[in-house]
Design a protein around this nucleic acid. Structure first.
Length: 633
DNA sequence: AGCACGCCGACT
DNA sequence: GTCGGCGTGCTC
């Protein structure tokens, strides 16, 4: 009798053993999907290893085999084991994320023609940097450079009979890129992302597996494209936070791509206008090859930094106002960037000092026009009161500025201008976004949040005003400086080169601003790295965050304390426990501890040996392990 | 995760 | 007296 261990799509670090019935014995092997009985359910799982016959009575039998092919070849299986180990995610859930297709949909047989990849000859030389380097970090300034680069790389790799994976941060990036590339490669192109229907997903996946596809463009899960012979992965906007999966397994696509490249022996190209500190640091140490394509700072637009402490008008400094007037006269587009929607950030009672907060999240409620108070975290809404709920005071101050108020002020100041606002309250569908793009030619002044920091919008702007940089710079996360630098770099690189970037701030001497003004990114990276080193932040140290969420404050605190005690016995470097910067979201209290070490393996070892056992006993507290977290708010 | 078992409140 | 609330426990 044969027995196998099966990994199920459950949040359990456990494998389950099943008997292999005689009639299935010939087909069952590691990497195959099987249907198994589980309690009163039937679940799909992966055969992970053969099991020895043991003194375990009552093993159930495998019901059937799901696919005739093997959905998880050896290399991807190894990758899955690595992800499961590195990111502390259950193997079953990890493998199910890698093979993200459901039950077989019948493909039209014969509809596709199989290409004979083996008939390609290894005649063309790969670009020289791809020969000796495993990871290349490409720093470019615009789309044209990047698409040219992609086309060249793709061609070289395809000519050697290998396939290419191109990863973008979000689905919305795909149509534009697809159009550019389609002109060159029509048949062997596939698109793969989470918004495909299960059937489309299945069919695309099969096309890739059979060798009918040479190039796939997709989001995170495309990193697991089941190509017979992958030759290159390109990661577009490698610094984007979207590359990190928010659900289990919480992997970073960039790191997974690099690991896959190591396993299957192919290079990985990271592309960015302003690399993440992580990638910059790797390049700095010589682990990645850095290739810069730059027009040189003489071709940058003018950058002006306005010290708001010396201005009378907190929204429109003299200089910004003058520049807008000039740009309006020229009939060119102005963008005003303000990273906060709504009218005012919060309402403050002048008599008792209380701020009106969300009952679920304890975060200041944002004041919107039409007199509504809205929580930007959970969506809670209420009518704004006239008098303070805690002291009955009559003077509720609107503190801080949002895009609504900026729009109102702009309409007063520039009555003839055609003004539009673009934030999540207005651009709530991809259709609305499309419409905005179509109508861009009929807009003089576009006011928006992060939504407008896109190449297709920025490239049409002559003037960009960053209304209040401090909103970004002062976010409660140690990466706030890095994010700020990245946003400013993007704006500077992408707007018209004869244009102007005006940055208004109360902190005009910040090193990110110096670096932007002088067009010398290294000033930012060097200084930021010094700080990260001094304070024990990534990438100098690896972090693993243990996030605890629960309805009862006391319970969460108790759990946090127990973990603290365990960690203290381990003599590991850690922060906390402390309340998260956003200490309560959707009625759940949030506490975290942050483990730090140069060697991430040490942190994993502690988690697995000690804490896992402990986690089992917490009931009303959810434990979230985030390895290499990108946000710690 | 999901699904059952289990022991306490308002209902025909 | 029952229907059902969701706490906790287990799944090869």
């Amino acid at each position: 009798m044969r027995y196998v261990k099966v990994a199920l799509n459950l949040p359990l670090d456990q494998l389950f053993r099943y008997k292999v019935p005689q009639k299935l014995a010939a087909q069952i092997k590691v990497g195959k999907r099987v249907l198994v009985p589980f309690k009163r359910r039937k679940l799909v799982g992966f055969v992970v290893e053969e099991a020895k016959e043991e003194d375990f009575e009552g093993l159930k039998e495998v019901i059937s085999i799901v696919d005739e092919f093997s959905p998880l070849e050896d290399d991807l299986f190894r990758l899955g084991r690595w992800i499961s180990d590195y990111y502390c995610s259950p193997l079953g859930q990890t493998l199910h994320a890698i093979v993200s297709i459901q039950y077989p949909f019948k493909a039209d047989k014969g509809a596709t023609t199989r290409k004979h990849l083996s008939s390609y000859k290894d005649v063309e030389e790969p670009p020289s940097f791809l020969k000796e380097e495993k990871v290349v970090l490409f720093q470019t300034e615009n789309w044209q450079e990047r698409t040219d680069l992609y086309l060249e790389l793709i061609e070289k790799v395809l000519s050697r009979g290998k396939q290419v994976i191109l990863i973008v941060p979000e689905v919305s990036y795909i149509p534009f890129l697809k159009r550019k590339i389609q002109a060159h490669y029509k048949n062997g192109l596939s698109v793969f992302h989470s918004r495909l229907t299960p059937k489309q997903r299945y069919l695309e996946w099969q096309r890739m597996r059979r060798g009918d596809v040479e190039l796939v463009i997709g989001t995170r899960s495309a990193v697991f494209a089941p190509f017979p012979n992958p030759g290159l992965i390109i990661i577009e906007e490698e610094e984007s936070l979207s590359h990190k999966q928010r659900e289990i397994p919480r992997y970073h696509t960039r790191e997974v791509a690099i690991k896959r490249g190591k396993i299957q022996n192919f290079p990985v190209v990271l592309v960015s206008q302003s690399p993440s500190m992580e990638s910059w640091w790797q390049a700095r140490k010589g682990n990645y090859k850095l290739v810069e394509i730059s027009r040189g700072k003489d071709n940058f637009p003018l950058v002006e930094i306005v010290d708001l402490r010396k201005e009378k008008d907190r929204l429109f400094s003299t200089s910004l106002k003058r520049s807008i007037e000039k740009t309006l006269k020229e009939g060119e587009l102005t963008l005003l960037f303000l990273n906060r929607r709504g009218f005012a950030n919060f309402l403050l009672c002048r008599e008792c000092g209380e701020v009106l907060r969300c009952p679920n999240c304890n975060i200041g409620l944002t004041f919107h026009l039409k007199g509504r108070l809205i929580c930007h975290y959970c969506g809670y809404e209420e009518d704004a009161p006239r008098i303070c709920p805690s002291c009955k005071g009559r003077h509720l101050y609107q503190v801080g500025v949002g895009t609504e108020q900026l729009e109102m002020e702009a309409r007063k100041k520039f009555p003839e201008a055609r003004i539009r606002r673009a934030d999540l309250d207005i651009i709530d569908t991809s259709l609305a976004y499309r419409k905005l793009l179509d109508e861009l030619g009929k807009i003089d002044l576009l006011i928006g949040t992060g939504l407008i920091i896109k190449e297709e919008i920025l490239q049409r702007a002559k003037l960009v005003g960053v209304v209040l940089l401090d909103n970004l710079l002062n976010l409660p996360d140690f990466r706030a400086g890095e994010w700020t630098f990245q946003v400013l770099t993007k704006i500077r690189n992408l707007i018209k080169k004869e244009g102007r970037l005006i940055i208004q701030t109360y902190n005009p001497t910040h090193y990110a601003l110096t670096a932007i003004r002088e067009g010398r990114g290294e000033l930012f990276y060097e200084k930021e790295m010094d700080l990260r080193e001094e304070l024990g932040y990534p990438p100098h140290l690896h972090w693993t965050r243990i996030l605890l969420e629960g309805r009862g404050k006391g319970e969460v605190e108790e759990v946090a304390e127990r973990i603290r005690k365990e960690l203290e016995a381990e003599r590991v470097n850690f922060l906390g426990p402390s309340s998260c910067p956003f200490g309560r979201i959707k009625r759940r209290y949030r506490y975290h501890l942050i483990l730090r070490d140069k060697d991430p393996a040490r942190l994993r070892e502690i988690l697995k040996r000690k804490l896992y056992l402990l986690f089992k006993h917490f009931h009303n507290v959810r434990v979230i392990i985030d390895v290499d977290p990108l946000r710690t708010m």
